[in-house]
Design a protein around this nucleic acid. Structure first.
Length: 228
DNA sequence: CAACAGGCCTAACTTACTTCA
DNA sequence: GATGAAGTAAGTTAGGCCTGT
């Protein structure tokens, strides 16, 4: 267990930390060159940039048979503000949405979509990390199981029978099933916390912080940079 | 060097569902 | 209870960029 490494950062735009001894997220990806100036607004500024996406000024235009949709690339500043806002709140009420949209010079719908996608990315990332953690945990349990089985074999080889405990009340031998493990042994064997619940992802959909109920990996988000 | 393919990221869309007035 | 609007999650589509060949 103790041999499990400590993962410092995490990849992409979302940075999650998982505070479990012996486990945390994967190492940061090499920062992509694209982050440098991909969102640089070409001279015209954001107004002009917007008209690319805002080409569908009549919101409905884009979907049916219109011109091929142009894809907006958010500027670094827009991404930064959105991330900052997301950090404070993963959902927006209509007023917040309007305000943020005005501040970013985007349409409220775009802000809404961004938050939807951001929540999706966040959840995906968290699920991946939980999966990774459970895999490691499974590995350590398997190893522990192997060790214990070896131990059992060794004890059998020594012909050591199961402990016979005499009940203080009846003066009869107690069945093994009624015996409880001594605290010391319990402590030694519990190298990993039990999985309280893997919180079935489907059930977690409506409860934002559901994933945090996965008690062993206390996962919380901490995203620094603008989306990759 | 340019051209191309493949992969990744993500904005935008669609659908299904829940909640609330 | 039925209904419609609004909001969200989940899944999908497609544009733009990067990288390797």
């Amino acid at each position: 267990m103790g041999d499990l490494g400590d993962f410092p950062g995490s990849s992409s735009s979302l940075e999650l930390t998982i505070s479990v001894p012996g486990f945390s997220s994967s190492p940061p990806l090499p920062s992509s060159v694209r982050d440098l100036d991909i969102n640089q607004v070409p001279s015209g500024g954001e107004e002009e940039w917007m008209t690319m996406s805002g080409g569908m000024e009549d919101e409905e235009e884009s979907s049916h048979g219109g011109p091929p949709r142009k894809k907006l690339r958010l500027t670094k500043e827009q991404s930064r503000l959105l991330e900052e806002s997301f950090r404070q709140n993963h959902t927006l009420n209509p007023k917040q949405k309007e305000a943020l949209a005005a501040q970013l010079k985007l349409r409220p719908r775009q802000v809404e979509v961004w938050f939807q996608n951001r929540r999706a990315r966040s959840k995906l990332k968290q699920t991946e990390m939980e999966c990774e953690y459970l895999k490691r945990w499974f590995g350590s349990l398997t190893e522990q199981n192997r060790r214990l089985q070896r131990e059992v074999e060794e004890l059998r080889a020594l012909k050591v029978g199961p402990p016979t405990v005499i009940s203080p009340h009846t003066c009869q031998p107690l069945p093994a099933s009624t015996l409880s493990m001594c605290p010391r042994c319990e402590r030694v064997t519990s190298t990993a916390p039990p999985p309280t619940s893997t919180s079935a992802p489907s059930a977690a959909t409506r409860a934002p912080s559901k994933a945090s109920q996965l008690s062993p990996p206390s996962v919380h988000s901490r995203q620094p940079s603008a989306a990759s």
